[in-house]
Write a protein that binds this DNA or RNA. Structure first.
Lengths: 310, 310
DNA sequence: CTGTTAGCGCCTTCAT
DNA sequence: ATGAAGGCGCTAACAG
């Protein structure tokens, strides 16, 4: 009788304090219940929030999450990927330092790999496993942010890009220029209102004086950390936000509402993204391209578009 | 000849794309190269910074880090611990929701466990492995923060504690009362200037009006997120920091310098803590108690103690 | 429905 | 200096 045996087994489990050995299971089945995630900076609120959502979702589904911080460094990223592969992760979630990701690192990995900040769908005909591209429309988002500033009357709109040479950053610069009416022929790097900085508070802080010197009345920052650094320095220099300068940022987080002033930003539907990601990563015959939806949230760092409030 | 064989082996590794299988190694040796870390909220900058430092240090030492977020929920924490044990982690770093940690969960775990926010040394005579207590002097730190406000002329100093019933929170309340001259007999919960809130931005935000109603000219917040929420709401209500109210917080992070105004806070020497932790966790005959050093950093959210600046 | 067996990839031990 | 064998704990396959 099954139930009797079952009871005996359960009793034994209880008595001996048995716990399944995941390493043995992984060795046998070849599939671990661990996912790997690589990101460039865990102290970036956008990324820590994303990691939290991903961990949450995959924990529900029975997976644990290995996390590693590349410190925005390509060499480190490479070592991390090697380690993750050795760890037999069941899948890899890769927020890469730069695009195109050094995809050859995972060429013969049979497990699925998701490229979180792909600019174009990752083409890997010879890949040993599924490759998923999360395609955020960085160009369109930057253009929309710029338009929001234009609609509020800003006339001298600067853009703070990421470190030079990063393709995602170039996409945003393109969007910014488009919204400013450029025909696409101009190299953003040569535009006087285009500055670059690391994706950090310090990066934003350091750019503030130059933007003010240039006479900007609006700035599109590449992420929330840059924007926070910008705002802090602009305030420290005695200028008012948004009266003197309006600020908007890419990749807003739930923290945005609590800065002073609160930060207007382009947000990503992370819940939706993570849901799709979990499906694409774990199930067969599912999409290998994910386009997260974006939405702008107006807060105090730029004037209200509603004329009645002006 | 060894070198020739070695070459052949290396060539084979290159050719076949061999990578060591960690699961097999773990199964055989019984020790994985993975550590587990449990924290209550990854979007808390103090914790994401700590995770970053820990990941950094242990990656150097050849370990990977499994991370799980308990969302400040005891039931979830318990499930996470079970999972971590199944994953055969080589050690567990546990920033628990509450104290005393439910230590019985890890009673027969042979791997070392570090309790990151212990109030008292964890006593586990029957534990199957090493147990490390990270003992932060929450009481002393809160007292020092309160004293800093007193020295700056604050006369009505409120304290925003964590959720009710948490022992770490009670320790801080004790320190606050001590600095206010209490003899220790008073129950902080009955003190009119003692409020409680979750360790979140919203928690701080929601407490702001009450502190202002109470006429506070100084507030000791339990963490940076609470302080940020407090400051945002106080500013939104038209009050000035530090002219009307001074704010100080426990567990400051590198972000503190970039809020508006910048936030005065008690910081932890995380580098030192993580170094000691790595030694205690991985080596034998090392301390099982770690006392991190704390230091106060004065920023714009409270008046300068230097009279010449007043 | 229950019990037995083989083998996942590695490392340690022992034999050549 | 190299090769061979055993076994870590689990699960899939198969036998009873």
């Amino acid at each position: 009788m099954a139930s009797k045996t079952r009871e005996r087994v359960l009793a034994a489990i209880e008595k001996t304090g048995y716990r399944p050995n995941n390493a043995a299971r992984t060795l046998l089945t070849g599939k671990s219940s661990t996912l790997g995630m690589v990101i460039p900076d865990l102290t970036n609120p956008f990324l820590s929030h994303m990691v939290q959502c991903i961990e949450d979702k995959f924990f529900e589904l029975g997976y644990s999450l290995l996390i590693a911080d590349s410190h925005d460094d390509l060499a480190r990223e490479k070592r991390i990927i090697e380690t993750m592969i050795s760890q037999q992760v069941a899948g890899l979630i890769w927020y890469s330092v730069d695009q195109p990701s050094p995809v050859e690192l995972v060429k013969d990995m049979r497990q699925p790999v998701a490229f979180m900040n792909a600019c174009y769908p990752v083409k890997m005909l010879d890949a040993a496993g599924k490759r998923i591209s999360v395609l955020e429309d960085e160009c369109g988002a930057a253009a929309e942010l710029t338009s929001e500033l234009i609609e509020r009357g800003c006339t001298t709109i600067g853009h703070l890009g990421g470190p030079k040479g990063r393709i995602n950053s170039a996409e945003r610069s393109r969007g910014w220029l488009q919204a400013l009416g450029d025909d696409g022929s101009r190299n953003p790097d040569s535009h006087p209102l285009h500055l670059t900085a690391p994706y950090t508070h310090e990066g934003g802080w350091d750019a503030a004086e130059e933007f003010l010197r240039l006479g900007c009345d609006g700035i599109v920052a590449s992420n929330e950390m840059q924007a926070v650094g910008l705002m802090a320095h602009i305030a420290a220099l005695g200028h008012r936000i948004p009266e003197d300068v309006s600020i908007v940022a890419m990749h807003g987080t739930p923290h945005a509402a609590f800065y002073v002033p609160s930060l207007s930003a382009m947000h990503i539907d992370i819940e939706g993204l993570v849901n799709k990601l979990s499906i694409s990563l774990l199930k067969k015959d599912t999409p290998d391209t994910i386009v997260p939806s974006l939405y702008f949230v107006e807060r105090a760092s730029c004037f209200s578009r509603d004329i009645s409030k002006c």
